[in-house]
Write a protein that binds this DNA or RNA. Structure first.
Lengths: 199, 199
DNA sequence: AATTTTGATATATAAAACTGCATCATATAT
DNA sequence: ATATATGATGCAGTTTTATATATCAAAATT
């Protein structure tokens, strides 16, 4: 029993720190006094479900009762979110937007550029994948190169380079490990404190 | 908050009934008085973490704090498919959820079933794709067949069939036309902030 | 160096959980 | 019809949480 409670406390503290919140900040978010948060994190109180739920909510967590020893795809999904940097999602989306806009401009100024349709199709195909599967650095590279297409004298070079990067992006989306997927099937993602236990 | 607590109470009761235990039997297992269990299940008390942990343990459940981001990210990403039929997206997500739950059950009841890991990896790999790229009908089929895996005598047949459907799903996700692909580059598919109104 | 922030801890009080015990209404079994 | 099981609910006593408030030592910031 008690290990469950300890784990919960640890999980709460880890989450708070991950979000870069002080106890006082979390206190304001969750409506639980800072002094209580300190005790909770220290494991010196056996807190009530309502308090736990309030803290969890403030930390973008959700309380769940899951079967023990189960390994599930949903956990895989959760793992995605745990390990995934939300900033990257936003950044990738922004890159994609810029790429789209740049492509729009290129199509207007040089609609007959050879290979442009191919590039466009490649970019469109990225929509098949989750944003989280796309590589931010490669997307940045792509955008840079696509921007060069509009520069006189660099059209074909840049376009071909873009196609090359597109291939890289696609390959990574298709074959890169899912975020932490190597661990997904072998350990319980829900209980981060039990990594070395019950695997 | 309160919905979290309600959900927990309901989950506890459902688990107890699933296991065919009376409150008195669970009381003995968990060391929590029957009267209290009744109140807990009725949601009339704001129980302590230790009580919850004891009950969970007796019901072969595990208390976990899982990121709500997982849901939020899924929701966020599915908004990408603005022009896609939202009902389908939701339906696909539900199918995915059911598939996950079913897989969880199967893994608990037959963890050593040959090929199960392969199937699970295939399902995980679906996460590379946008929900909108997944075919609802195929997902339904998949769920149906996966549900058959749990039936005695049908394990291998159903599992192999599942793998086959998985291949179909994957192929369609990779090669089917994009939804409204003609508009892809002209609409702000990646402007999640604009759509991020409810949270 | 001075100031601010952070988490830990103490105090007193109100509220509520928890417990053992008992009992009731209803359902089920004999 | 009687006996048993089940979940709900009441009661009184005990324990503990939660809270507001305050303060401290250490760390971080200015």
């Amino acid at each position: 029993m008690s290990y469950d409670i300890t784990g919960i406390a640890e999980r709460l503290q880890a989450a708070r720190k991950t979000k870069g919140l002080s106890q006082r900040e979390l206190s304001e978010l969750a409506g639980v006094p800072q002094a209580q948060i300190s005790r909770i994190e220290a494991g010196t109180v056996d807190l009530r479900l309502s308090s736990l739920a309030a803290l969890a909510h403030a930390l973008d967590l959700e309380l769940a009762l899951v079967p023990r020893k189960a390994v599930a795809v949903v956990r895989s999904l959760s793992r995605d979110a745990i390990s995934y940097n939300r900033k990257d999602v936003v950044a990738i989306q922004k890159e994609m937007q810029r790429i789209s806009e740049t492509m729009r401009g290129i199509q207007m100024s040089m609609p007959d550029l050879e290979g442009l349709q191919r590039l466009q199709k490649s970019i469109s195909d990225l929509h098949r994948f989750r944003v989280s599967m796309l590589d931010l650095e490669e997307m940045k590279k792509l955008r840079h190169i696509i921007e060069q297409i509009g520069r006189p004298g660099k059209e074909m070079v840049s376009l071909n380079e873009s196609l090359k990067i597109m291939r890289t992006i696609r390959n990574k989306a298709s074959h890169d490990p899912l975020p932490d997927s190597g661990d997904t099937l072998s350990r319980p993602a829900y209980s981060l404190d039990e990594e070395d236990d019950d695997a």
